[in-house]
Write a protein that binds this DNA or RNA. Structure first.
Lengths: 205, 205
DNA sequence: GTGCTAATGTGGACGCTGTCTACATGGCTA
DNA sequence: TAGCCATGTAGACAGCGTCCACATTAGCAC
């Protein structure tokens, strides 16, 4: 029941990997109940440690949530990259379009499979770390690369490239959000899949 | 400072319009701090009333949040409808495209002008009121109408109509979410406007 | 090995939150 | 005028984030 990294099994005074344990606990609750349910006290309780121990590793609750959110983003980027790797190189213009569709489908696939993690990955409170237009966000880097392939393969003209990230990302992020948290949640599966196809094909025909 | 509907000015035992006062207070905090900050106790405090009085009008905190969210959706739909009315009928295929662009821009305009209300309008916890594929959601009705005009004006073929809601809505909702809560928040205004143009034109060229 | 220091975890407290139960008030209708 | 029922109050409990002072111990200098 207790994993090696989970609770403080030996009841040693020092946990050893408390930060990871807290993030792990946060990931579990975020997965099941969404970002709003991530709590410092619950995480410390799961780790078998006193509530205030968390403040040695996180400035406040938002700091923990940020760490959990980063993990969610990583997992999301990992799935998209995995799906792209499975699809293979797929040369030529049609292959580039195919890879864009694959990336978009993987994005929505993650959101539907793990709605709690998806929401958490984008749960940024109200602060503004002055990260530039391109986050150090893996997902953005993947998207940029796939879109660049559209140009290099001749699928789109170079002058159509600037700003294409916004269109592609907005479309998949929008349908993913509407289907998981938004007004289109629990749409019948067949209609849901049709909607996803419609959006993906509108962006990458 | 105190509005007529705000606090219990006369200190009467019965407030008279407590439900509206609580929703009003919730709207104020949602506007400034987002849906997560909407609280029963704070709302009752603002209304000059005891905490438990709220339970005579709302089942729990989520119930209040739902009421506030409904108001946010109304305001959003009202802005979109206003912008459409300002644009006028605009007959013909090009007019129909123009009206779709106008609706999309108004959607994003609201999200950027009132990010707290925008987020709140889509803050539905985890329950599933079995509302059909079409919500009784005003926004959806407006979108359906504008898209139907695309067909009736000959701008698009009838067979291209089914599912067009998903594409249009996903695009504007996605860019609005990314720009307000997501990874594209506080993008420089010029680049932000360019991104909006890019998305709108991709959907309604 | 011995002893100091800094990192890490504990205990207690405060005010905030939602929510339960029992009780008080008074507007409206008979 | 009498009483019912909607509405508001009072008090309590658990859970939350966060501050403070204190305890423990890992790791390093000697």
């Amino acid at each position: 029941m207790s994993t090696s990294i989970g609770e403080n099994t030996g009841k040693r005074y020092h946990h050893g990997h408390l930060r990871e344990a807290l993030v792990q606990a946060g990931l579990a609750t975020a997965r099941a109940e969404g970002p709003g349910a991530v709590a410092l006290r619950a995480a410390t309780r799961a780790a078998g440690v006193s509530p205030n121990a968390a403040y040695r590793h996180f400035a406040d609750r938002d700091d923990l949530l940020q760490a959990v959110a980063a993990c969610c983003q990583e997992r999301m980027a990992a799935l998209v990259q995995t799906r792209l790797d499975e699809a293979g190189p797929l040369p030529g213009p049609e292959g580039a379009w195919q890879r864009l569709r694959t990336a978009g489908r993987a994005y929505v696939e993650f959101a539907l499979a793990e709605p709690g993690w998806f929401a958490t990955g984008f749960a940024i409170p109200l602060d503004m770390p002055p990260d530039g237009p391109t986050d150090d966000f893996d997902l953005f880097a993947i998207l940029v690369k796939v879109l660049d392939e559209l140009v290099s393969s001749g699928a789109i003209a170079p002058e159509a490239r600037p700003g294409a990230e916004y269109v592609a990302w907005a479309a998949v992020h929008g349908i993913a959000t509407l289907l998981t948290e938004g007004s289109l949640r629990n749409l019948p599966p067949t209609e849901r899949d049709a909607a996803i196809d419609r959006v993906i094909n509108a962006v990458a025909f």
